[in-house]
Write a protein that binds this DNA or RNA. Sequence first.
DNA 1: GTCTATATTTCGATAGAC
DNA 2: GTCTATCGAAATATAGAC
Lengths: 216, 216
Amino acid sequence: MQKAKTDGSISLNRRRTGKGIRENNERIILKAAEVAFSETGFKGTSVTRIADLAGIPKANVHYYFPRKIDIYREVIDRVCQLWLDAADFRGSDEPETALRNYISAKMDLAYSEPLGSKLWAMEVLTGAPILGEFIREKLLDWFELEKAQVQSWIDQGQIDTVDVQTLFYMIWASTQHYADFAAQTAILNGDKALSKDQFETAKGTISHVILKGVGL
Amino acid sequence: MQKAKTDGSISLNRRRTGKGIRENNERIILKAAEVAFSETGFKGTSVTRIADLAGIPKANVHYYFPRKIDIYREVIDRVCQLWLDAADFRGSDEPETALRNYISAKMDLAYSEPLGSKLWAMEVLTGAPILGEFIREKLLDWFELEKAQVQSWIDQGQIDTVDVQTLFYMIWASTQHYADFAAQTAILNGDKALSKDQFETAKGTISHVILKGVGL
DNA sequence: GTCTATATTTCGATAGAC
DNA sequence: GTCTATCGAAATATAGAC
């Protein structure tokens, strides 16, 4: 979350003079851009909107990031990192623990990083013009390994015979739904964002259905 | 799909002279707009883009729909109709049949109307500025009835005790994933759109996991 | 590093000839 | 009903004074 600087110090929101200015302003801009892009996508977001959200003159935004696409790439890069840092199955050989931990980690991520999830969804909806490369070059290999693990559980009779890809998509879709469709779930929840307790309840039901659903 | 005219005839893609021109051109524009809006959302879509997709001069698009928002509302209205026309649980008192049919209907809809699903997702991602009203006024009531049906199954011990809202969200998310995240599933499928057979396989696994997951 | 002014393009929408 | 031309606003991006 925080960026280590070369001198070892950490820049937070506090404005600084000297060397930290660029780093600090870049972070503020990227934070604002994450909000804006997750709301209206790349084409639908103006640099003016990002500048306003960041509380920085538009010209300064261009000073740090010459073109809009430069901001977008940085923001998407961070989302890719979030995905790669998320839990995977390789930490456990035991399907019940592995699945439960994975679902829990994905739900926690949807709760703590909803903007990242929404950005991912927005990118894929628009045809994954930037994310496509990442999915092809990094996620694909990761996916093959994870699928192999689940397939081995099936081959050994530890879980039911299910389509492995579909199982992953169910977990991804169900957990990310709570970030991507938050506007909808809020309305259906009486115009109130879901509480942390409701997230935990949802996590419990998703875990129950998925685990029991594959025979655990 | 086809619109009945007052004279009883049907307009398809073929250009006509006389009374059918407006209706025919409006349909062509709406079809193009559905593609464009589902890709880049309302703000991110230009009237020029819609006109180009429709193969109609931009000025003509404005002749039929004075403002961009007029096109958008029409397209969203159709999506709302699709949702309401989709299957619900009230056709069956028996949970296994009801759930299986509902999942099947939602998967068929994701396959046959992916643009509608993507538009819905795009709208909700952008905060549901238009859909919000529909969700509040129509979907909410529908949802309460459906939830009550599922809750009665739980109360009568026909299915496991799960969070009913979460169960619905799992079904919606898992089925709509195949439309909304098609760009991603295609890449993970070797840069090839999923076949009808793969859709059926996915439908089978989703049904298996959901039904068994709630104790059926 | 900041910020006003501005160049250039694109966009939504309209006018008006045909 | 069609379509060229265009207006005014908004958007991306840059220049240049401070």
